[in-house]
Design a protein around this nucleic acid. Structure first.
Ligand SMILES: [Mn+2]
Ligand SMILES: [Mn+2]
Ligand SMILES: [Zn+2]
Ligand SMILES: [Zn+2]
Lengths: 136, 136
DNA sequence: TAATCTTTGCAATCGAGTTGCACCATATGG
DNA sequence: CCATATGGTGCAACTCGATTGCAAAGATTA
């Protein structure tokens, strides 16, 4: 995989065996992944290694985390150019039926007019309901 | 407290000792409370009783829960007339400095235009940053 | 090569949330 | 007024995702 090396290079994160497989896995999935999801997929890689890899990725803006209320933090790869700034904010969708969480990159994100003196730094926006597959 | 009885009556939830103190506590706080917060405040009330009380309140739309990413679910009393429907949605603010979470009832909430066939049922919207007290 | 720093695997621990169960309080019906 | 049913409460145990200590393995540097 070319793209994995490219992302790590851009974000100045050293490439290692675990990092490669974790990032490759994340890129291959359409839904945001929990630590458990990744652990199940990468049977030969230790949970704590995956955990620390995810922290490293998150600290270096390679991925972002989503608290969808499922009890497990989900992770998704940032789009090219993302710096996890307020301007990079987007909604997420959690399907109550199929338990899938994903980024809604195409849904326009409205600026939020906070009260005087409030400063936004990040946000966790999760819309819950039925996805297009389950709403039938 | 008159208001406590009134709320329980409106929502058709039987009044008990634990329910009274929990609801009174929630009403008295400006920030959303975690189970731990309530446990600490109500030293003589058992954690599991508070927990079940919160579930009862939530099921009966007396309170709503907020997943703010702090690792603990927060609870806040619903405003009068709230049915926890999508129309009752509002933003929440989590202060990264003072660790306080609260409802932004006054910030206008924009309708979200979801992709074709997606159906919204609930949402968890948390803006994170610095509150007016901490942004100085 | 030797010293140093980083990554990894394993096992243990933490802590919020949840549950089983026995006891207690209240409500109801005779 | 007591007998019984229903639901609430307290205690202790447990679940499970997240996190950490530590030593071994690997990579980097002098
Ligand atoms: Mn996302
Ligand atoms: Mn709220
Ligand atoms: Zn679905
Ligand atoms: Zn603050």
């Amino acid at each position: 995989m070319q793209i994995v090396d490219e992302i790590l290079k851009i974000k100045k994160v050293k490439n290692t065996a675990v990092r490669t497989v974790v990032l490759r896995h994340l890129l291959s999935q359409e839904k945001a992944q929990s630590l458990k999801d990744i652990e199940n997929a990468l049977v030969y890689t230790d949970r704590s290694s995956i955990f620390r890899t995810l922290k490293t990725f998150e600290n270096n803006k390679i991925i972002h985390s989503i608290e969808d209320g499922s009890g497990m933090i989900k992770y998704a790869v940032c789009v090219k150019g993302c710096n996890c700034d307020p301007k990079d904010l987007h909604y997420h969708f959690y399907c109550n039926n199929c338990d899938k969480t994903f980024c809604l990159f195409d849904v326009p994100f409205q600026n939020i007019e906070l009260p005087e003196n409030f400063k936004i730094q990040q946000a966790n926006m999760v819309v819950k309901g039925l996805c297009n597959n389950c709403n039938k």
